[in-house]
Design a protein around this nucleic acid. Sequence first.
DNA 1: TATTATATAGACAGGTCTGTATCGCGTCAA
DNA 2: TTGACGCGATACAGACCTGTCTATATAATA
Lengths: 192, 192
Amino acid sequence: MAELSTRQRILDGAGDLFFRQGYRAVGVDTIVKETGVAKMTLYRHFPSKDDLIVAYLEQVNQLLWEWFDQAIEPHQGRPREQLVAVFTALEKLVKSPQCHGCAFMMAASEFPELDSPGHQVAIAHKRAMWERFRDLAQAAGARRPEVLADQLLLLLDGSFAAVRMFGLDNPGANVREAAQTLIDAQLPRELS
Amino acid sequence: MAELSTRQRILDGAGDLFFRQGYRAVGVDTIVKETGVAKMTLYRHFPSKDDLIVAYLEQVNQLLWEWFDQAIEPHQGRPREQLVAVFTALEKLVKSPQCHGCAFMMAASEFPELDSPGHQVAIAHKRAMWERFRDLAQAAGARRPEVLADQLLLLLDGSFAAVRMFGLDNPGANVREAAQTLIDAQLPRELS
DNA sequence: TATTATATAGACAGGTCTGTATCGCGTCAA
DNA sequence: TTGACGCGATACAGACCTGTCTATATAATA
C-alpha cells in the first residue's frame, strides 16, 4: 500500500471531478471536501486553480502517451499496424465506463482563448498526437502523411466527442474500421 | 431595416457570448450589459438561464438544418453526392472566422449529465444528424448505412472539435476527402 | 383619458466563487 | 526537549452568481 503524496491525492481527486463535471463547474471547496485536504494545503501545492488545472492536464498528457505507447508496442517495426492498433485501443477506451471524453477538448471548450494556460497545454498535446500520426504514416510509406494525420486526428477527437455526447453507447464504437479505411486509402497495397 | 424583437435581440446577443466564451463563463449580467436589455425583461422572456441556453440551442439547431438543406439542395436525387456535399460545406464552415466549434458539443462538455436540458437538446440534434446520414447512405445504396453514419458523424464532430482546439488553421480543412474515402468504401462502384 | 403591456434602471437577497489568514495538532530530526 | 514543518479546520474578504423586487417611462389600445 504505497501511500500517495498529498500533492498526488489532490491531483487525482481534482482530476476526477474536473473530468466528470467540467473545470468551471467544480469549485475549490468541492475539491477540498472530496479529497479531505485542507484548503491552504491545496493552495500551497498549487498557487491557483488554473495551476491545478494545468497540472492535471499535464498528468493526463503523460497517461495518454503511456496508453499510446502500450497500444503500439506489440507492433514494433510495422508502422501501418501500429496506426491501426491505436484505433483498436481507442475503440476499447471509448466503450469503457471511466471514459468521459477528452480532458483537452473540454479545456479547449471551456477556455476558448487560444493562449490561455489550459488551452495551450491542450494544443500542445493535440499537435504532438498529430505529429505521431504523421511520423507513423510516413514510416508506413503514406503518400501524403500530413493528410492522413489530419484525418486520423478528426476520427480520434470525433470519438472522444461522441463519448461525452452519447455516453457508453456511442458511434466511436466503429472508429477502428473508419481508421482502417482511411489508412488503406493513403497507403500502397499491403506488403507483408 | 426590420427591427428585431426584444426576445430575438436577447437570443442573438446571449448566443454570441455563449458560443465564444462558453455557457458557464457568461453571466446574466454580461448578457444584460451586452444586449442593452433590462434584467427583468430577460427573465420575462426566459424564466431561467437554463431556459435561455435551451432556446439558444434550439435556434442553432434550426440554423444548422437550414445550412444542411442548402448544402444538399443542388444535388437533389443523388444521395451519394449529397453526402459529399455536406462535407464540402463543412470544410468551408470550419475555415470561416465566425465558427467557434459546435454549440452542442460545448453543451455536452459543460453539462455532462445526459438528462440535463441542454444536453438533451444536443443529443437530439446529433441523433437527428446521424439519422440524416443514415438515410442518405441507405438511399445511396450503402452496404451498411448505420456504420457509414457512425463514421461520418465522427468526422463531423472531429472537425468541429478541431476548430475549437486550433482556431482557423485546423485539420478539419481536409475533412471532405476523408468523408469521400469513407463513402466510397461503403458504396458500390459509382454508377452515374 | 384610463388601462394595459412592455420596457428600462437599479437595488437587493442569498448563495457561491477564488484566494488569504489564523490557530492548533501531530511528526520527525537535532 | 525543542523547533521546523506539513497539514487540518475554519473564518473571512471581496467579487461574482442567479434571480427578485420596486419604481418609472413609454406606447398602444379601449
